[in-house]
Computed example of a mutant assay.
Amino acid sequence: MSEDHTHVQEFFGARAADWDRKFPDDGPAFTTAVAESGLRPGDRVLDAGCGTGRALPALRAAVGPAGTVLGADLTPQMLAAARQAGRDTAGTLLLADVARLPLRDGVLDAVFAAGLIAHLSDPEANLRELARVVRPGGRLALFHPIGRAALAARQGRELMPDDQRAEHNLGPLLAGSGWDMISYADEDARFLALAVRRA
C-alpha cells in the first residue's frame, strides 16, 4: 500500500466513529445533490469513497429496488461505521481503492463522489479509473456539502488558485480523464460538479 493510502486510512480511520456526529446537518445537502445527479430507476451507481455511507440511502431512493448501489471505501473503520448506522441495507459495501476498482469496464451508469477529489493520490489517473467503470454517456457527480470558500474558511486557510476543484482547473482535469463537465456549482452551502462519460 502506498504512503498516500496509508495516510488516508490513518486520517479517516481515526475519525470514522465521530464522523456523522461531527457533520450532523449534511443530510439534506446529500439528498439534493443525488437528486440533481441525473440518476434514474434501475441505474447502477457507485458511491466512490463512500465513508460512513451518508449518500447510500439517497442513492437507493433514486435508483429504486431494481437499481444497484455500491459503496467503496479504502478505510475499514468508515465501512464499519456505515454498517453500524444501518446504511449497508441501502447498498453493497466494498473495501476497495478507487484507483483500482474490482469492477468490469462500463458496468456502471454513474459514480457519486462526496469529498473525494481532495484525497486522490493521482487525480487524473483516478478519474480515468472511474471513467473506465462507467458506460459512455454515464454520469459523474463530484460533491461536497459546503463550497470551496466555506471549506477553506473552516480549515483556516486561503482559497488558492491552484485548487483542483476550481472550475478553471477541474474542467481540464475531467476532460483529460474521459469526462465532459456539464455543470458546476460552488456555493456556500454546496459544491457540485456534474460530468458525462465521453464516448
Score class of each variant (00 low, 15 high):
R154S: 12
P102E: 06
A189M: 07
A141R: 10
A85N: 11
T68Y: 14
D97E: 10
L142E: 09
S121E: 13
L194A: 04
G64M: 07
A14D: 15
E10P: 02
L159P: 04
G106K: 11
N169M: 02
A114Q: 12
R198S: 15
Y184A: 00
A175G: 05
P145H: 09
T75I: 04
L46N: 05
G147I: 01
M181S: 01
A152F: 05
A113R: 13
T75G: 03
E124I: 04
L127A: 14
H144K: 04
D25Y: 15
A66S: 11
A16V: 03
A16Y: 09
G86Y: 13
V134E: 05
G42A: 11
R87I: 05
V133W: 15
R83M: 13
R100A: 15
S37V: 10
P123W: 09
F191R: 10
D109L: 12
P41H: 08
T6P: 02
A153N: 07
Q84D: 08
A185N: 05
D163F: 00
L159K: 07
E187R: 15
R15V: 00
T92Q: 08
A14R: 13
K22Y: 05
P161A: 08
G156N: 08
L101P: 02
A80I: 03
V34L: 12
H168I: 03
A150T: 14
R83K: 12
A29F: 14
E158A: 13
S2G: 07
G13E: 06
V134H: 11
D122G: 06
A33F: 06
P172C: 03
V63E: 00
R148S: 13
P65E: 14
R21T: 12
S37L: 10
H5Q: 14
R190Q: 13
L103R: 11
R40L: 09
G91F: 04
A85Q: 13
A81N: 08
R60T: 02
N169T: 00
L151Y: 07
W19Y: 14
H7N: 05
T52S: 15
W19K: 14
N169G: 01
A61L: 06
G91M: 03
T52W: 08
P102Q: 08
R40M: 09
F143L: 09
P41A: 12
A35Q: 13
M1T: 07
R44K: 15
E167P: 03
A125Y: 09
R190T: 07
G71Q: 09
